[in-house]
Design a protein around this nucleic acid. Structure first.
Length: 576
DNA sequence: GTTCTTTGCGCG
DNA sequence: AAAGCGCGCAAAGAAC
């Protein structure tokens, strides 16, 4: 069918007919232009045709459900609005006097319902029939929800909520594209690292030789040949029998003890972690065709950070980073931000003194220069303690020093903590709000105010209140930092897509990314871009420019340094 | 037998 | 020099 003008927005949802989709097209004024249905098998071609025009904004229930099959068919879309993700933002925000009404229809299902395997092309009916209601009567529901969300964004006093929703949705596009592209992973390098640390791959069920040797040494040292270092309760008993009076078997507590068992035990724990979390079975389960493909859960953390599902994507140990290795003819652009959170705090609180300390590559050195503390180490503890709410120890003791030198920054986090302790809700700079306290929390506070309350009730309530204060204190900083990162990602994606196709790379990243630089990994404040060799410098510049653009968008008119540590390398190991 | 909770540790 | 925030996952042990 032919439209008079290219559509500005397209709401895409399942049709009332099986195996069909509905599309409702809107013009730039928000008036409906037309609607039509197509067979599921024709969707990729239809999306591709409409995308080729003016890149409309695709409005869908949830990109996690819709986008992977399109990517599998070789289709990318430029702009989107994820109703499910934005529902959570616009429902919980305290930036609006009348946020959108909550609905169980807009709660994210278990991420594993949409499996790691690419679902059969557009056969997504099982996925959302999990929710209540008729699975084929979707399009009207999407239209109604989108109308509510648009109205809510218009009610906002400024454009910040709209920016947040746009960034959240673009983040979801990036997330699916990264899953589709995968993180290039060298099985050979990973296996070599495992053998170097653990010895040859053991028979199934057996301990690797290095761990077995250490277990024997631990047994001899404790004079207990039956000790099982994998079992904390049994290990604890064995330690105490040997006269080592610890309360737990955790690393930091054992590290304080002077005893010959400590060294082999800590080494054993390190190796056991590598073996169980990222050993040969992890490799077999999660790496296929030299690609690691985690599922990213956009907005999966209350603060707006991403979570992940499958393979522990956000917890890959640094020791395995050398296994992240570019394809032949490609390279990696790796970038991370040094001390993102304190820089964000300086900017969001408009604390000029702290922004001055943040000038340059090392914020902690800047804090020393400001005169607040004597050494870099003190600066680090003091700053982290301020953002996390440390009250005791050297970290907490430095709080007053910081308050006198950076009053605005400290006032912001102190106020957030106070609000949280009082049971209130705090928000990020763009308007993502913290959860309300749960019923248990409120009940504990109520008990303490009861005339019959005893000292124990009051202590418990006080402690819970402080716990929540530390959470809200950190929420505003962590959440605003997550917003900076989201804008950074979106800017990187936008600028990478403006690069021309490379001439001559080996096309190994899948059809959509065969000749294109693409984001391959994101972890809170760092990115890895997989890039054809000839475009390495262009991609590095993109990542740098994107960071500056993100800073300007989030903190317009405020001068804050958010510098990158940026390198181009064949692998993501730190020293290569 | 299965599912739930706890412990410990990886990441930022 | 500390143990303050947010996560996911594996294994063991407890609970069913």
């Amino acid at each position: 069918m032919i439209e008079s003008a290219a559509p500005h927005e397209i709401v895409l949802g399942r049709s009332t007919r099986p195996d069909a989709w509905s599309l409702v097209l809107f013009d730039a004024q928000g008036s409906e232009q037309s609607r039509h249905e197509i067979a599921a098998s024709e969707l990729p071609v239809e999306v591709s045709r409409l995308e080729a025009g003016a890149s409309p904004r695709w409005v869908v229930r949830h990109l996690r459900e819709v986008y992977p099959p399109l990517l599998a068919a070789g289709i990318r879309i430029r702009r989107a609005h994820d109703l499910l993700l934005c529902h959570a933002i616009l429902r919980d925000t305290t930036s609006l006097a009348d946020p959108i009404p909550s609905s169980s229809r807009w709660v994210r299902a278990d991420p594993l319902v949409t499996t790691i395997e690419t679902p059969a092309l557009f056969d997504l009916h099982e996925v959302s029939s999990q929710g209540a209601g008729d699975p084929y009567a979707e399009i009207d529901e999407l239209l109604a929800e989108y109308a509510r969300q648009r109205a809510a964004q218009r009610r906002a006093p400024d454009g910040r909520l709209a920016l947040l929703c746009a960034a959240e949705s673009t983040g979801a596009l990036v997330a699916e594209e990264m899953t589709a592209a995968g993180l290039p992973w060298s099985t050979a390098v990973h296996e070599r690292l495992l053998v170097d640390a653990l010895g040859p791959r053991p028979a199934s069920g057996a301990r690797p030789i290095r761990m077995a040797e250490l277990a024997v040494a631990i047994g001899e040292s404790l004079e207990d040949s039956t000790v099982n270092p994998d079992s904390p309760p049994r290990l604890l008993k064995s330690l105490r029998r040997a006269g080592i009076l610890v309360d737990s078997t955790s690393r930091w507590e054992l590290g304080e003890i002077e005893h010959p068992v400590v060294e082999p035990l800590l080494t054993y724990k390190k190796l056991a972690r590598l073996f169980t979390a990222n050993g040969w079975s992890w490799l077999a389960e999660w790496v296929r065709e030299e690609r690691f493909r985690p599922i990213y859960l956009t907005g999966g953390v209350v603060t707006g950070r991403w979570a992940s599902s499958g393979g522990g994507a956000l917890q890959i140990p640094r020791s395995l980073r050398p296994a992240v290795r570019a394809d032949e003819g490609w390279t990696l652009v790796c970038a991370d931000v040094a001390q993102l959170e304190p820089r964000v705090l300086a900017a969001m609180s408009k604390d000029r003194a702290m922004a001055a300390a943040a000038r340059g590559a090392d914020l902690y050195e800047g804090v020393v220069r400001s005169g607040a503390v004597q050494t870099r180490q003190e600066a680090k503890y003091a700053v982290l303690g301020a953002m996390y709410g440390a009250t005791t120890g050297p970290s907490g003791q430095l709080g007053p020093r910081l308050r006198s030198v950076f009053p605005r920054a400290m006032a912001l986090v102190d106020a957030a903590a106070k609000t949280g302790e009082d049971g209130g809700v705090v928000s990020t700079l763009l308007g993502r709000s913290s959860p309300r306290p749960d019923a248990m929390w409120a009940a504990a506070q109520a008990r303490a105010s009861d005339p019959d309350a005893d000292g124990s009730d009051e202590r418990v309530a006080r402690s819970r209140a402080r716990d929540r204060g530390r959470f809200t204190r950190n929420f505003v900083v962590q959440g605003t930092a997550a917003e900076w990162s989201l804008l950074w990602l979106a800017e990187i994606r936008h600028r990478l897509s403006a690069l021309p196709d490379a001439h001559d790379p080996a096309p190994r990243s899948g059809p959509v990314f065969a000749r294109r630089a693409h984001l391959a990994f994101f972890l809170h404040d760092e990115v890895i871009v997989h890039v054809p060799l000839e475009q390495a410098d262009d991609a590095a510049r993109v990542v740098q420019d994107a960071a500056e653009a993100a800073t300007r968008r989030l903190f317009p008119g405020f001068d804050i340094d958010i510098p990158l540590d940026l390198r181009i390398a064949e692998d993501a190991g730190k020293d290569s």
